[in-house]
Design a protein around this nucleic acid. Structure first.
Lengths: 168, 168
DNA sequence: GTTGTTGCAAATTGTTTGCACTGGT
DNA sequence: ACCAGTGCAAACAATTTGCAACAAC
């Protein structure tokens, strides 16, 4: 549990400056995101919010996440499957993400990792890469070791995100 | 319209070797994928299949795509949003994909583009990158030019895939 | 004839929306 | 007091699944 008054106030100001309002659900979402170490899936946000404010409806979490995204306060990262992870902008600075397609663990990566590639893509195809927006896919060290013995999941069981899990 | 007899036969053999069967729906899906120049979304596969075999049910396309993926005959690429694109394995050799988050266009990229990065990730984090499996995100040349003037879509209207569209 | 596969409809899962009401400013 | 934001339920969309009929082998 974090103080978070500063965050709350600055976002409140930002909201008001656009004619929007700071409300309990929005506070709850912000709290959830700021207490989280890393990234949260929709489901995780909903769960976290439910703990601190059970009356907040699922739909409001969706709407809040959109609102805060528009504001630029939260960012989202598309993970391999259909899942999306959310985190406060600048929570830990801009960085890239890689997700293990077997265990679902997310790994943060330095944001300059792809800068050379980005430059090359820009030069060759005019494509302006935004690598922070989608997670790279692959196998984490642990899973790469276990590797081919049992078959690869790819379509994860709909929610292993974050943290390392290893079924065996 | 392509011949495709060779493909059909070899897949049929592969299927039989695993106790599975070559059926009309599967042929239709294979035909759809082999006639396509690039990648097809589920919707596009369904549509293409419907043309050559109207009696084939949506659900069978889903099941077929899974079956053929397990077989290794088709591959899928996760695009920015929840969408997934399918293509025959080796249709045009392994390659990377980048998707414009504004217009949704998909760009193929040489498969060695990330090899240096992959090496670095392997060395530093033990992460075994499989870059062909998820599309990179960014802005294509055209959209980068238009750029910031109207707001970026990101969550695409559920189906601009493939080919360039520019609403204005 | 056996059994993998299909078509269909119903069940899931994930997200959005219309609307009357509540609460921030 | 005004109107953005909320809770709720219903609408949507996308995908999966149980099952009887069917067809590949």
């Amino acid at each position: 549990m974090n103080d978070g008054t500063v965050l709350m106030d600055s976002v409140a100001a930002l909201l008001r400056s656009k004619g929007e309002r700071m409300t309990a659900p929005r506070r709850a979402v912000l709290t959830a995101l700021s207490n989280a170490t890393g990234h949260l899936s929709m489901e995780e946000v909903v769960t976290a919010v439910a703990e601190s404010a059970p009356s907040v409806h699922r739909a409001s979490v969706y709407r809040t996440l959109v609102a805060l995204s528009d504001l630029g306060v939260v960012q989202h990262v598309h993970l391999g499957h259909g899942a999306t992870a959310y985190h406060l902008t600048g929570a830990e600075g801009p960085h890239l993400h890689a997700q293990c397609r077997r265990c679902g663990a997310i790994q943060d990566l330095p944001n300059d990792l792809l800068s050379e590639v980005a430059r090359r893509m820009g030069a060759a195809h005019g494509f302006e890469l935004d690598a922070t927006h989608v997670a790279l896919s692959g196998l984490c060290a642990e899973c790469a070791a276990i590797d081919g013995d049992d078959h690869i999941v790819d379509e994860l069981p709909t929610d292993h995100r974050h943290g390392h899990h290893h079924s065996h």
